[in-house]
Design a protein around this nucleic acid. Structure first.
Length: 365
DNA sequence: AAACCGTGGAC
DNA sequence: TGTCCAAGGTT
């Protein structure tokens, strides 16, 4: 029925994307991981840089995690990068550098779930595997007017079944991508372009005029708002002494795992007063607050945060193994989340303009 | 099952 | 301006 209509539409309207036509399973894999919860436009420059720097499974496996996270900085969901890195080493060790050619084996690799395994299997290996992502879920929920929550257990089961039943044999790769292109360009979440949709005559939700309210999704929990305080400790290291700042490496699990940050903590109120106590408890750092440098607002997926960044003075040395003095000139080599990168940039500019002013005044005399 | 995990663009 | 949400996976 509609699969052949969709494939015909796809031949004419398929997007030209850097990872299409690669027929290199590694490129397909990298692109699928990057595309998880991330828009095509955001992925393209990262994909190009990645394939340039890590052109093969071997190149990725031999890289350091620091290098991997640096290339990923700004894309978000950093466990994807760490899992990609881990999986590359598994593929070298257990599969001789070649991706396994079955969904079962692919799914055992870290970072590859049901969707990604089927996407790689169908697109890179030509296997008859149906898949389901946010686009395909929306397209099917409209065509078949699915009226149970699409993100519930029952809804997911039904939609995966629909995906399997409608899969044209021998064309799964193109078909899966066609569904996603349709979802991204025509069957949009809001204001879908139904009049130019090749499947409108088959779309139950469109016939009933309820396409805007499909898929039905479960209500989302409210997100909390936190207040954080961060300490900017400036020192001098090396000979001749160069400006450096004290950074902390976050634990490998959880938010911004493995990334670097300015020592910080969550507080209730009165950030300047609370900061010394927090740093004492969390990092064994004895500090005195000197001045407030900046305030940063940021929205993560599950909470919002307001960060107060303070210039501070170190009162005694700390032995915390996760803390490190980093030269301003080497700040870019340390992967950070957006908030800390913003703070780092500001500190860098401030100290650079300071030292250049001092330099000029010295020259004058 | 529900919570957790980033960022940026569109409206 | 706040809200939604985008080629999901893990715990």
């Amino acid at each position: 029925m509609f699969p052949s209509l969709l494939l015909r539409w796809y031949k004419k309207h398929a997007r030209t994307l850097p990872w299409r036509g690669h027929h290199d399973a590694y490129a397909v894999w990298v692109s699928e991981i990057m595309l998880q919860q991330t828009r095509v436009e955001a992925v393209i420059p990262y994909f190009e840089r990645w394939m340039d720097r890590f052109p093969s499974v071997r190149a990725l496996a031999e890289a350091s995690e620091q290098d991997v996270l640096n290339l990923w900085e700004g894309l978000g969901y950093y466990s994807r990068a760490r899992n990609l890195h881990k999986a590359a080493r598994v593929i070298m060790d257990e599969f001789g550098g070649q991706l396994p050619r079955s969904v079962e084996a692919l799914r055992k690799l870290p970072g590859i779930g049901r969707y990604t395994a089927a996407a790689i299997a169908s697109m890179a290996f030509g296997l008859d595997e149906p898949t389901l992502d946010g686009n395909i879920r929306r397209v099917y929920a409209r065509i078949f007017n699915v009226d149970v929550p699409a993100d519930s257990t029952a809804g997911e089961k039904l939609l995966w079944q629909i995906a399997a039943e409608n899969l044209p044999r021998g064309k799964a790769g193109d078909y899966n991508q066609a569904l996603m292109d349709l979802g991204a360009m025509v069957c949009l979440p809001k204001n879908p372009r139904c009049e130019s949709c090749p499947l409108k005559i088959h779309c139950t939700a469109f016939q009933l005029g309820v396409q805007e309210s499909r898929p039905i999704l479960k209500p989302k929990a409210e997100i909390p708002h936190h207040i954080n305080a961060a300490a900017i400790l400036v020192g001098r290291i090396g000979n001749p002494p160069i400006h450096a700042v004290l950074l902390n490496q976050r634990p490998s699990r959880g938010l911004l795992g493995g990334m670097w940050e300015f020592p910080s903590g969550q507080i209730q109120i009165a950030p300047a007063k609370s900061l010394p106590k927090i740093l004492k408890e969390s990092y064994s750092l004895n500090i005195r607050v000197s001045e407030e440098l900046m305030v940063v607002h940021h929205a993560y997926t599950h909470f919002r945060v307001t960060v107060h960044a303070f210039r501070c003075e170190l009162l005694s040395k700390s032995k915390n193994e996760f803390l490190k003095w980093v030269k301003l000139s080497e700040l870019d080599d340390y992967p950070m989340g957006k908030v800390d990168r913003q703070i780092a940039q500001k500190i860098k500019h401030q100290l650079e303009s300071q030292s250049s002013t001092l330099g000029k005044s010295r020259v004058r005399k």
